[in-house]
Write a protein that binds this DNA or RNA. Structure first.
Lengths: 338, 338
DNA sequence: AACCATATTTCAAACGTTTGAAATAATTGC
DNA sequence: GCAATTATTTCAAACGTTTGAAATATGGTT
């Protein structure tokens, strides 16, 4: 069954007693090739299961039609959903996608970047790891003329890069406003890891919504946590520590954090537990199984973020936008009421 | 900043006034190359950010050091967790991974297969789509001498392929046995889509546990559903329809299905709701947030399934196992009590 | 039969590597 | 000093494609 001589253009050419270039051109449907010849070649190619060797083509064409993606991990639904958008659009445009996980580790991210560089991807979409401060490994791409689009997690201080971001400010503003409109005056804010740059944007959304609606800000009602459960519990304890300043609502950085918070509040028999209204970022499908579900979710539209990232990247690849003409695209969030 | 002449071996050779082969051999640490020469070459390569072109290497070496993975989707934690195992082990052995989603659609699966074929992956790991009946697109790989390992979802009737499977029989047996040991006599079984081949293995685990423990089997206590919620609800309705034969426990094919079931039972005010004990496959992290959590979960160890798949694949690639010497590896499940 | 125009095919170089064989340089022994 | 080793470098072909230029074939006019 196994065939030892690989089916190459040369092999086809010998079988058909014609030159390699005729075969190549026939398969690529060149107008100068006789119709009958094309037919003969194409049939033979089909029958012998000719599969063009992408490495050879890449080498010749100096492009790979591959898009690289680097992201922290595939266990977070935000990322997997965003990939859906990227892949969909990329495939439609004849590009393939290589996904590489950094596991939020800089060394692994560097390794991924290098392998994608060697693979000569035509473009890169990247959500940087939590502790990426130095960008040499990513700058290499632009130095070689390969466009890079940062999505979601991006170097906050660096203006000289292309970005596609969820409009996390707007999302948090909207969530806070929603709670204010429902009559809450004491709205707690539980933020995420401070290393993630949009942590601050969210906080600003919260602050601005308070300000615009004349709700006094209280530093006591703000706490931060990483994704660790213990950490979250102690943050929540602090938020709900002062009886004089007891929150009646909560905006949380991310739903898993929010669920930990809710769980703690419930288990600690908080007197007004039933009245507390919560909103988190994410809109996890699991919400429908919870007994004390959040009143609403901030849907971040990851598919749309992904799609916008690949759209921009393709424009850069096709030089419809100059590689130095740095773009910033914001994708709005949507408040989903449960 | 952008460099227009690409840094190739030739470019380095010209800079250093030596031949391309010396440069190549120096970078690959050939023993015949003078140490001082090596040092000069390696320094220059580093300074000029030389990045070997993988396409050229692949072409020359006739291997890509890439493993292809085709799976239904990245939204299912079983798959993303299994990828973790694959990637980890692959990277450690110098292989990269291209992941392609079939979205449970045969056409997309064929497309993915063809692109991976063109990319000349050294091996393929695949979880077939729900409706893959014909395997021509996957057989092509073995015909070209590229080994294929089917994992989890695999062609049930076909013995002539390499398989790595969760021992779903054992998992389901154990779950059922656990419930029997807790005194249950009426254990309902809610199965998954019949097209997925291991649906039957699970059912057999259930049946055998009943038989081995002298618990009578009742056809009324068995129903099937796909992943659709409505479908699940109507299946559950049937299972709990007969007051003469009311289940006190439930084994479900997959946790999301189980959660739908629990939700329905609770909302329909089932009289003995609190007594019903449930187990599903998956061990989702969300369980800790549920108010009526399953009593246990069948942990399928996806990372281990992935790792076993890539281990086998590498053995096939390295010809430590003959490509026709078809293997079947089973990975045991573990009952996790909550 | 010679010429021209057009249709079709082939040539040959290139893409960036690797690698065995051949060539050259350096070192040693006498 | 000169041959014989040994160390080091270079040559050249190959991997499988693509593509502009050159070559050849075909057909139509006169």
């Amino acid at each position: 069954m196994t065939n030892n001589t690989p089916v190459t253009l040369k092999f086809l050419a010998e079988k058909l007693k014609m030159s390699v270039s005729t075969v190549s051109k026939a398969l690529n449907n060149y107008p100068t090739i006789n119709e009958y010849t094309k037919k003969r070649v194409q049939e033979m190619a089909r029958d012998l299961h000719f599969t063009p060797n992408k490495s050879a083509i890449n080498l010749k064409e100096k492009k790979s039609r591959i898009i690289g993606i680097i992201l922290p991990n595939l266990l977070d639904h935000f990322f997997t959903r965003s990939i859906y958008g990227v892949e969909q659009f990329a495939t439609k445009n004849g590009y393939n996608v290589i996904i590489s996980q950094s596991h939020d580790d800089l060394q692994k991210e560097i390794q991924s970047a290098n392998m994608l560089l060697r693979s000569r991807v035509d473009g890169l979409i990247v959500a940087i790891s939590k502790n990426t401060q130095d960008f040499a490994h990513l700058d290499q791409f632009e130095n070689m003329g390969t466009p890079v689009v940062y999505y979601t997690r991006n170097p906050s201080f660096n203006l000289n890069c292309h970005k596609v971001l969820g409009n996390t400010f707007q999302g948090c503003y909207q969530a806070t406003k929603f709670l204010i409109d429902r009559g809450h005056k004491k709205i707690a804010y539980l933020g995420g890891p401070k290393m993630i740059n949009f942590t601050h944007d969210r906080f600003n959304g919260y602050i601005n919504a308070l300000k615009d609606n004349n709700v006094p800000f209280s530093a006591e009602l703000v706490a931060y946590t990483d994704f660790d459960q213990e950490n979250t519990v102690s943050a929540i304890k602090n938020l709900f520590a002062n009886p004089e300043n007891m929150p009646t609502a909560l905006v949380a950085f991310k739903e898993p954090i929010l669920f930990d918070a809710i769980k703690y509040l419930r288990s600690s028999n908080h007197p007004n537990f039933e009245e507390i209204e919560c909103i988190g970022f994410g809109n996890t499908s699991f919400i429908s199984y919870l007994d004390s579900p959040p009143i609403a979710s901030v849907e971040e539209n990851p598919e749309s973020v992904g799609e916008n990232a690949i759209k921009l990247l393709l424009q850069l690849i096709n030089k419809e936008i100059g590689i130095q003409d740095y773009q910033k695209v914001m994708v709005d969030c949507k408040l989903v009421i449960h």
